[in-house]
Design a binder for these strands. Structure first.
Lengths: 219, 219
DNA sequence: CACAGGCGGATTGTCAACCATTTCGTCGCC
DNA sequence: GGCGACGAAATGGTTGACAATCCGCCTGTG
């Protein structure tokens, strides 16, 4: 990479805002005022506007005419739709990864799995959350489908905080890890159909656990 | 719609370019010069640039630094990835439509089906192409999942011309329509699993028919 | 005191002009 | 004919300005 002294490219501003939304620094419904972002990032207005446009096409923020950008609020039904799409796409990814001939990636998946197993009942939800995202991301990478990867990336961002909130229950962690074990084994052993079926069930289960907690879903 | 005297919004410019790419007015690899688009559409440069940026994030065009935008060339492997993603998402859409309680939409699907059946062996590939797109689009709409709809929209645009090229074979039309009949029946009768399985097989078959013709796939 | 209406600051939408940087064809020279 | 410099063309990006709109606040009236 090149170390530029330039202020900030539009991509950087977009990434920064994306992270801010993912990490909960910006809450749903909050307005993203151009001038504030300029003050924060030092980017020019055109850059900021371009970044906001990009986030809007990703569905992360909504732009209303003369009202500007605000972090998109998710309906429960929209969360459901996201999970259905994830079900189909991550299921596909698991199946493709299983049939792919990528021993090194499969070894890494197995490594993450054993790490999750070892720290399973410690109840460290933060560590499990990290391993969980790494596990999912590795499967997506293993599928080798860039379109699927891009779609899933945009699907995962708006529900990132919600994902973590489900793991505050130790029982849920154990259940999720049991799913993970099944899926990891199926992928490593090349059983594509099993991998897909288990992954779909896993994602669906994730939505059910989530919808029982659904607290914030503004209107 | 509102009849504005304004020149052209960025969205309009993007749609126009999208249609141009879909219809083959712009061929893969062709450069999209800002000044030409300005002359064509009457939009300002900022609009045009914004539109091109948007198309770039959609993956329709590639932007190289100081070289500008050009219509993206698709590798055969990329086409395969698109079809795999379509398989998963349209399969999901068929299943969701089957379980949904939308009698009017299902009736419209049946209507399109009978129209396709009636004109099946006439070999009118253009009409079949139109009905085919209407059929697929209706199923996506029937699923009621906006994320899936958006993803499939961006997936379908770059392969639109290729879709039509497979229908220049009357035999292929008959085979495709046989698939359609199975899927339509499954959706109308609410058999979600069948609808999904048949739709996945249908999309996969579409890729196979296409890959036997693969002539243009620059590099 | 309640409320309708207007006023002005704040924010966004849009454009035009400007300059730097790079690409690429062309022309002259060897 | 080949090669290098030059300049037009195209893009990347910034700045400033102005219009349109929203929203809080203030005032006048009943």
């Amino acid at each position: 990479m090149i170390a530029k002294t330039k202020p900030l490219a539009a991509n950087d501003v977009a990434s920064r805002l994306r992270d801010g939304i993912r990490m909960g620094r910006y809450v749903p419904g909050q307005r993203l005022v151009e001038a504030d972002i300029i003050a924060d990032t030092g980017a020019t207005r055109s850059r900021v506007r371009e970044a906001l446009q990009r986030l809007a096409t990703e569905g992360l923020v909504t732009i209303e005419e003369f009202r500007g950008a605000s972090v998109k609020k998710l309906t429960l039904d929209e969360v459901r739709q996201i999970y259905r799409a994830r079900m189909a796409l991550e299921g596909l990814a698991a199946a493709e990864f299983a049939t792919a001939d990528k021993p090194d990636l499969k070894a890494r998946l197995q490594a993450i799995q054993t790490e999750m197993d070892s720290g399973e009942s410690t109840g460290d939800h933060e560590q499990f959350g990290r391993l969980n995202t790494a596990w999912h991301r590795l499967i997506i990478e293993g599928a080798g489908n860039d379109y699927v990867r891009a779609f899933l990336a945009t699907l995962t961002v708006p529900i990132y905080r919600l994902l973590f909130s489900t793991f505050y229950n130790a029982q849920r962690i154990d259940a999720a890890n049991a799913d993970h074990r099944l899926i990891t084994a199926a992928i490593v052993e090349g059983r594509a159909e099993d991998a897909e079926r288990f992954m779909r069930a896993h994602v669906e289960q994730g939505f059910h656990s989530l919808s029982t907690i659904h607290s914030h879903f503004g209107n």
